[in-house]
Nucleic acid binder design. Sequence first.
DNA 1: TAGAGCATGTAAATGGTTACATGATTGT
DNA 2: ACAATCATGTAACCATTTACATGCTCTA
Lengths: 175, 175
Amino acid sequence: MSLAHALLTALVERSCCGAELTDRFNRSIGYFWPATHQQIYRELATLKASGWIEPLPIATGRGRKRAYKASPAGVSELKRWVGELQPPRPVRDELMVRLRAAAILGPTDLTEGVERRLATHRATLDHYLALEEKDFSDLDTTRKQKLRHLILRAGIESEAHWIDFCQRALALLDE
Amino acid sequence: MSLAHALLTALVERSCCGAELTDRFNRSIGYFWPATHQQIYRELATLKASGWIEPLPIATGRGRKRAYKASPAGVSELKRWVGELQPPRPVRDELMVRLRAAAILGPTDLTEGVERRLATHRATLDHYLALEEKDFSDLDTTRKQKLRHLILRAGIESEAHWIDFCQRALALLDE
DNA sequence: TAGAGCATGTAAATGGTTACATGATTGT
DNA sequence: ACAATCATGTAACCATTTACATGCTCTA
């Protein structure tokens, strides 16, 4: 239930409505756990039914902003969940499946696909580096700041790794 | 439809029945696209309905081995699919969601979770390194061998990266 | 010939994706 | 008062996970 808890975290940070939440989400933790507005509205309804979030008394009805805040029960639940032990979810990477097929089949058209993927990794890396430049420095002071920087570093290093990998794959496919 | 094409690749490599396929799968490309036997049997039925695989004439009925081979149509389909351009599937990493919650909530119990994850990454890395030792050398000769080694290297480097990351996370959480 | 384990399956639940629908607000 | 856009949804679909069911084969 990562999506539920990611949303709960966002609402602990600051109360807001679904649309704003979607927006904030897709600019922060959404890099590691993306979600569309449909998923988010569905999850908000579930969270509310669980009593983990509460609507702020503003307005109701379709088309009207409905803001929510995390309830005390929601905060406890989030603390519990953070400490929960769970096996990591399995990796699933389509590029590896294609590369393996290319290994078995012999010469194929995979090059352009890898080039595209290389380009998206480069774009994502640039984006992350810009975020790092803007929000962090070498001397993060608070624990919160350090942890948030670490999360972004995970993204940066992972993108860098995939860029390197794609380049090696291209070299091999070109042979 | 990565699963379908991963299975198709395995059946191009060698014909076999569902159970053996499950086994082979989980020792090779399954590291990058895991699947249970339930998924595999369902997908075999779909692949057969599409005409991309054909049953070998041995036996039928529940409990009896049913071996399949890739059909010519299946091979063409696989070639087409390898060249297909598709956006990479989004990253989803629960650990990042937990770390972010830990950043927002303040001190929490996340340490043990990260330690466990570190341990599984170390175990996986050891396993991959053993596979590398057994199946590959620095001087892979064929294109097929080079590509298969590259795929394994992706796993090795990715695991090494996450080990490093978990260690840095632990250092931060311990402060 | 009974039991262990292999091989093939069914069913329900979960979660994510895609397409579409509708009410409210804002700017012209 | 109309169009554009914002905000909130509904519905159908697809893939994955988990739990369970059943037939077959081999060996003690």
